[in-house]
Simulated assay, not measured.
Amino acid sequence: MEHQQLVETTSNCPSSSSSMKSNGENQVKPFKFPLTVWEMMGASGVVLGFAVGLVGVYLSLPDSDYSFLKLPRTLEDLRILKDDLEQYTSDYTIQVLLVYCTVYIFMQTFMIPGSVFMSLLAGSLFGVLKGVAIVVFAATAGASSCYFLSNLIGRPLVLSLWPDKLVFFQNQVAKRESRLLNYMLFLRVTPTLPNTFLNVASPIVNVPYHTFLLATFIGIIPAAYVAVRAGTTLGELRSISDLYDIQSIGIIFFIGLASVVPTLMRDNNKS
């Protein structure tokens, strides 16, 4: 019922607006903030929790100049951050790891771009195996945090930002309820829908959390491996596009194909 109501509400908007135009009503609706006061308080509480955690870890570090600490936006920023953090990583591994995970989870929770730079940083600081494990954990935790936060306040935001994508995603989820894990895994591995959208929209279209969690955990491993591996040779990178060579794209493609083969075979058997 909730699925149908969402589609009907969204699909009925154009017809209602056209009928208003035909009746000569050209009134402009006043802007209404999409979140209630309680929803804003809940989101603010989450932000405050992250802030307190970061400050606590920061205070546990030795006295020094940390002006270099900032979210990297370019490869040059990332190289400077990596050079400055290396000395702290060896002496204060736990603190650096806590700061890294907290920042990564915060970025994923509030859809802040730049996770690829964080994945590269993990490779340069922790190596391939540890880096992949850390990135997969932090990305999965951040996606889960975004999932639960969106379940609280996400509906009006998604309806205002991605109404068409939401209707498409809802219809696909409704058609694939019996094999939803395969579909979610396919979406995670391939760029069919942005990961940010999946994190926010999944609870709204009633994707069960256990399905969301498993698809996220498995689906982000290939991309995490590619970025972390590239981070171990950070000095050789000239642009972000260098991450995705033919071999990396091939690996991701075949993993995505393998995730949907069971679904395709099942559909053929039914037909």
Rank of each mutant, 00 (worst) to 15 (best):
I80H: 08
S144N: 03
V135M: 13
V173F: 02
Y147T: 05
L198M: 00
E25Y: 11
R79E: 01
F50G: 08
S19D: 13
D77L: 15
T190I: 08
S241Q: 07
I221S: 02
P156N: 06
S44I: 09
L243R: 02
S160I: 08
F106I: 13
V46L: 09
R176A: 06
L157I: 10
G250R: 13
M118I: 14
M1I: 10
Q247K: 15
F106L: 11
S124Y: 12
L257K: 14
L237H: 00
H210V: 13
A224N: 15
Y100V: 06
S202W: 07
A51Y: 09
L69E: 03
T233C: 06
E177Y: 12
S17T: 04
D65R: 06
I252T: 10
L78F: 12
C146I: 00
V47C: 13
F212M: 11
P156S: 04
S145I: 00
S60I: 06
P72R: 00
T36A: 08
W162R: 07
K175I: 01
W38T: 02
N12S: 15
P194Q: 02
P34G: 14
L237V: 01
S241A: 12
Q27Y: 04
T216Q: 03
M20C: 03
I249F: 02
L75D: 10
L97I: 08
A230R: 00
A143Y: 06
G154A: 06
F217D: 13
S64E: 10
A143M: 05
V132R: 07
D91M: 08
L78S: 09
N269K: 05
K165E: 02
F254C: 09
A223K: 05
G219A: 03
S115R: 03
S22C: 11
L213I: 06
L198K: 00
